[in-house]
């Protein structure tokens, strides 16, 4: 990489849900209906937090994506346009805050929680956000979450408009979720920098994960077979040029892939 921003993050757990045929086995989440967004998010978050338990009072959560819970938004809007009464359950899950509130209750998380919509380079932005959050005295680790739902009629049109104006993010082939739990200090896989793509060797990794493409690649890189002391360059094809590559350094054995990674 020719230009880079140094980072000092250690990945302590990852989890993904990337099945191209959907998620028929995803457990339901009490109080949440209709949309897969919330159960998917909870699934990957739970697996990370269970794999690497820590102090929930010193844990932060940052959720990212592009469209958010489009299923809930569009269902609400469609019902309204059709003259149907609003569903109070959809009101309860009207923002992604709600499922983060559920997560925080289940795991006792009292640290900061945030939700972001980013039009490109989500992986880099979440890593930079984690780096900032970890600068505060109150936080030891950050759970980074990415969730994007497959396109529906409305978001499909929005994706086409974005592409027409030069956007790099397309829809995922299926609903997808990914989580990475990061902290400071030494560990098996360290994220050492974000930088430009000039020196990227080989072909870009396969796509299909929409806005969370870079995060999925990052998770796969962390669970890959990098020998101790080697580095892996993870490409986020949705990112602006100066943030297109994340550099991983393998200090020890790879992270456990987990059942779905």
């Amino acid at each position: 990489m020719t230009t880079r921003q140094s980072l000092s993050l250690t990945v302590v757990a990852v989890a993904t849900r990337t099945e191209p045929d959907g998620h028929p086995d995803i457990p339901r989440l009490p109080g949440f209906v209709e949309s897969t967004f919330n159960p998917l998010l909870f699934d990957v978050a739970q697996r990370c937090l269970t794999a690497a338990p820590g102090d929930p009072s010193r844990t932060a959560v940052v959720l990212g994506g592009l469209m958010g819970d489009s299923t809930t938004f569009d269902l609400t809007s469609q019902r309204m346009v059709a003259g149907q009464v609003h569903n109070p359950l959809l009101f309860m899950q009207a923002t992604s805050n709600s499922v983060l509130g559920y997560l925080s209750r289940e795991f006792g998380i009292t640290g900061p929680m945030s939700c972001l919509s980013v039009s490109g380079g989500l992986a880099g932005e979440l890593l930079l956000a984690a780096d900032l959050v970890l600068d505060t005295a109150e936080v030891d680790r950050v759970l980074l979450l990415g969730v994007e739902l497959a396109a529906n009629e409305r978001t499909g049109h929005a994706y086409r408009l974005l592409a027409d104006s030069g956007g790099q993010v397309g829809p995922p082939v299926a609903d997808v979720a990914v989580a990475l739990l990061v902290e400071r200090g030494a560990g098996p896989v360290e994220i050492t920098s974000i930088g430009a793509a000039e020196d990227l060797g080989g072909a870009p990794a396969p796509g299909g994960y929409g806005s969370v493409q870079g995060l999925v690649h990052l998770a796969l890189g962390c669970t890959g077979s990098g020998a101790p002391g080697t580095t892996t360059l993870v490409h986020d094809p949705t990112a602006p040029a100066e943030q297109a590559v994340v550099e991983l350094t393998h200090r020890d054995a790879a992270l456990d892939k987990g059942p779905e990674a």
Binding site: L66, M67, S117, L161
Partner: peptide
């Protein structure tokens, strides 16, 4: 913009339902 999509159909304005946009 989301409501207008479902009520009136696709338009250039549909993209504004996306927060990042």
């Amino acid at each position: 913009a989301i409501t207008r999509f479902w009520r009136d159909g696709p338009s250039a304005d549909t993209v504004n339902g996306t927060p990042a946009v």
